[in-house]
Design a protein around this nucleic acid. Structure first.
Ligand SMILES: Cc1cn([C@H]2C[C@H](O)[C@@H](COP(=O)(O)OP(=O)(O)OP(=O)(O)O)O2)c(=O)[nH]c1=O
Ligand SMILES: [Mg+2]
Length: 755
DNA sequence: GGGGGCGAGTAGT
DNA sequence: TTCCAACTACTCGCCCCC
């Protein structure tokens, strides 16, 4: 049972199933833990359960935190959501009290049945170790700068701390706390900016040691991993036993794990803590018990386990966070043992996935076999940035384009492509929204991504009618990932990419055939001879047995990115890598720019200028767009484009964006403009520089196209809160995290298409 | 009706 | 003086489409 790759946490979110509208995410400042004081806002208080945080003056600390937070937008946001959560909890409690004895009895019986099934699958034969480095980032920094030793310090910035050392924890300073509050709690706190390169290097060293004990170990993050040392113990027990002194399992495990921790420290000067138990869930709990620089052994024996679990705080269990804790607490459940007592009620109140999980927790079950994570298990990749709130459109566009570029770079390094593009925004009042778009082809082309993101962003901007959309965060995510392969490097064009993915590609009789330039002369199909010695840093998806994103036949016939960036020399670059000379296929100008970023800027402008309602012509997937000549000064190359039929002043055809057309509601930016940029929306005003035009157009679009936009935006009428989820739909456990007894584990791979 | 996409929410580091 | 991250994974409800 549970024979599957270890998940981040082997649980599901037990949220009361009638809680229709989900609560705001009530991230508590001190995550795991008790927050007695501060009435009203449980989620803004410090928690003291984390290692190194016991015995603090929590009242004083909470007071300082509260004072520093009160009145801020952040605080208001938290308050609002705690309030909503409270309402939900009330609803749940009412429902709970409405059940009859009979109902509960029946549900309890059904749960007992499930208990039987689960018990039957209990596996106590494995020895699982969870190793977690102590104050990891901080420890690395302290090692590299001894002057930091013994001083309270944290890694992060004024805005946010990633972690703190134990000296700082004495003041209540901890991970996920903003630095400025940390400073208030501890004025002498030293804040060191993070250096991920160092942490990665340290992590690699540690992992090398893990592999000595379990070559199949399962890293969960830079600083922690699960190991199955069962085989190691069997094979090497002789090495640890003094004569035939005899050593029981506990002693042997303890010695071996201690040795491993010793090796880690010797090699890296960093300390680790460990938990030893029969499965991952238990091992994880255990590794926290003797932190820092300690370990805990939980006998692999049912009675011990049940006893251990019974008094354990539910919040210590991986997967039970702030919100779940409050739900359970509202039902009188604070310790795991109570999950058994209330099992009938829990079954009636929560989803099948949830109550299944609860039982599994209280029985002390968990995964007992591991499998390593590789890059090809990745589901998504993203990049986001927080900034001082702004509603300035050019600024936001620029930021989002930069994010796309960074993300594209990262995807190139990992050699992956993605098919679903998602924009994430956070308003200045901390409300988070995401908007996704499925592309017609997987890509990692920054231009394509930037164009798509800009489009979505524009929709959101224009949808905000009362006040301009004021944001504090922008993020870009790609999902539905696949390994890119040789041909993958010829990316589809914007046109292709954003053309209605679901649409039955009208015969795809693309008229333009691509000169099939060979590309990626090297670095491509070398999957074979490679298996690097490096333990398991599968840094990309290649060589994976996994489905690779194939190129549909029609794609080859459509203009590829080389066409898009079709300067002869560029063919060999093939990727959207950094180059000096670009040809913009929108305006068809050759542009000399110092960076891709500059080119992006140009491209954005072009796109914005040229997009118009999707007068779709299935025969030409080509962007045939007229040219304007204002954007750059270096425009020597004049030769016409063989693919474009309507070059000057012609129709602006934009298949660029799929379902919804986001931009102007009409027409060409006439070729009449020589030096000036005429607004294609109103065709009234012209500008000398792009920025001014952009700004104007934004306003222009707002007025001119808004009604249209609102209709076409796939944007649901923003989730009517009325959406009662009284759904009578039968809930069932879907494949993924959870396996029911006897069921085979289903690995869900979201890889798209193989033909 | 069921499956898939999407968006919100929760959780972890 | 102000100031509350970045990244990943998973679940669940809703809605659309076949
Ligand atoms: C909890 C947390 C950790 N991190 C980073 C910094 C941590 O050093 C690293 C590992 O996380 P943790 O293992 O949770 O924390 P830690 O190693 O710093 O301290 P402990 O001794 O309690 O284990 O991950 C974040 O960036 N954000 C977070 O919210
Ligand atoms: Mg740690």
């Amino acid at each position: 049972m549970y024979s599957r790759r270890v998940c981040v946490c082997e649980g599901s979110q037990p949220v009361h199933r009638c809680s229709g509208i989900r609560m705001g995410d009530t991230v508590d400042i001190g995550q795991k833990g008790a927050m007695a004081a501060s009435p009203g806002l449980k989620n803004l208080c410090l928690n003291t359960h984390k290692a190194g945080m016991q015995g603090l003056d929590t009242d004083k600390i909470n007071d300082i935190i509260k004072r520093a937070s009160e009145g801020s937008r952040f605080y208001q946001y938290k308050q609002k959501h705690q309030q909503q959560l409270n309402e939900k909890l009330e609803v749940m409690k009412n429902e709970a009290s409405s059940f009859t004895e009979e109902q509960i009895k029946k549900a309890t019986k059904q749960m007992d049945q499930l208990v039987q099934e689960l018990e039957a699958e209990r596996d106590l034969s494995r020895t699982i170790v969870h190793v977690d480095m102590d104050m990891f980032y901080a420890a690395v920094e302290m090692r590299d700068d001894p002057s930091l030793r013994d001083k309270p310090m944290a890694v992060g910035s004024t805005g946010m701390l990633s972690t703190s050392n134990y000296a700082a924890r004495r003041y209540g300073v901890r991970a996920a706390m903003p630095g400025f509050i940390g400073k208030k709690l501890c004025p002498e706190l030293i804040i060191v900016p993070p250096d991920f390169t160092k942490y990665k290097a340290a992590s690699r060293e540690v992992q090398e040691i893990f592999s000595q004990y379990d070559p199949g170990f399962s890293p969960m993050s830079l600083d922690e991993a699960y190991l199955d040392i069962t085989e190691f113990l069997q094979k090497n027990s002789a090495l640890y036993v003094d004569e035939d002194d005899g050593m029981n399992h506990e002693q042997l495990s303890q010695v071996v794990v201690k040795e491993m921790r010793g090796k880690i420290e010797a090699k890296t000067q960093l300390t680790a803590s460990a938990g030893i138990a029969a499965n991952t869930r238990l091992a994880k709990v255990c590794s926290d018990l003797n932190k820092p620089n300690g370990q805990y052994y939980l006998p692999q024996d049912r009675d011990h386990i049940l006893q251990f679990i019974a008094s354990l705080s539910i919040r210590k269990v991986c997967g039970i966070g702030n919100v779940s804790e409050q739900h359970l607490q509202a039902l009188g459940v604070t310790q795991c043992g109570q999950l058994m007592e209330k099992r009938g009620l829990l079954r009636l109140l929560f989803s099948e996935t949830s109550y299944y999980n609860f039982l599994s927790i209280v029985l002390g079950l968990g995964h007992s076999t591991l499998s390593a994570w590789t890059e090809r298990d990745r589901k998504s990749i993203s990049q986001e940035t927080t900034f001082k709130g702004t509603s300035d459109r050019p600024t936001l566009f620029k930021l989002s384009a930069d994010l796309c570029q960074e993300l594209a770079d990262e995807m190139q390094r990992k050699d992956i492509v993605g098919k679903v593009l998602t924009l994430k925004i956070k308003t200045t009042d901390f409300k988070v929204k995401t908007r996704a778009q499925t592309l017609s082809e997987a890509t990692r082309c920054p231009q394509v991504m930037a164009a798509g993101i800009k489009k979505i962003l524009l929709l959101e901007m224009n949808a905000a009618t009362d006040q301009p959309l004021s944001l504090r965060l922008l993020g870009v995510r790609m999902s539905s990932l696949a390994a890119s392969e040789v041909g993958q490097r010829r990316q589809a064009t914007l046109t292709q990419m954003f053309s209605q993915a679901a649409k039955p590609k009208a015969a795809s009789t693309t008229s333009t055939t691509l000169p099939h330039t060979e590309q990626q002369p090297h670095q491509s199909e070398r999957g074979t001879s490679r298996e690097n010695v490096e333990t398991r840093s599968d840094n990309n998806m290649e060589s994976s047995a996994l489905v690779k994103e194939k190129i549909s036949p029609c794609r080859k016939e459509t203009p590829s990115i080389e066409h898009f960036l079709s300067k002869p020399k560029l063919a060999e670059v093939a990727e959207c890598t950094r180059i000096e000379v670009y040809e913009c296929s929108v305006c068809e100008e050759v542009i000399n720019v110092e960076s891709l970023e500059a080119f992006n800027q140009h491209l954005d402008t072009c796109l914005e200028l040229h997009s118009s309602p999707p007068v779709r012509d299935s025969k030409t997937d080509n962007n045939c767009i007229n040219r304007d000549k204002t954007v750059t000064e270096s425009q020597k190359n004049e030769d016409g484009d063989p693919h474009c039929k309507e070059t000057s002043g012609g129709k602006i055809q934009s298949d660029i964006f799929p379902v919804d057309n986001c931009n102007s509601n009409h027409g060409p930016s006439t070729s009449s403009l020589k030096q000036d940029l005429l607004c294609p929306v109103c065709e009234q005003r012209s500008f000398r520089d792009v920025t001014s035009l952009n700004t104007h157009m934004d306003e222009c679009l707002n007025k001119a196209a808004i009604s249209e936009l609102l209709q076409e935006v796939p944007d649901r009428p923003l989730k009517t809160d009325t959406a009662k989820n009284q759904t009578s739909k039968k809930r069932r456990i879907r494949s993924s995290q959870w396996v029911r007894p006897g069921e085979a584990m289903v690995t869900v791979w979201l890889v798209s298409v193989v033909r």
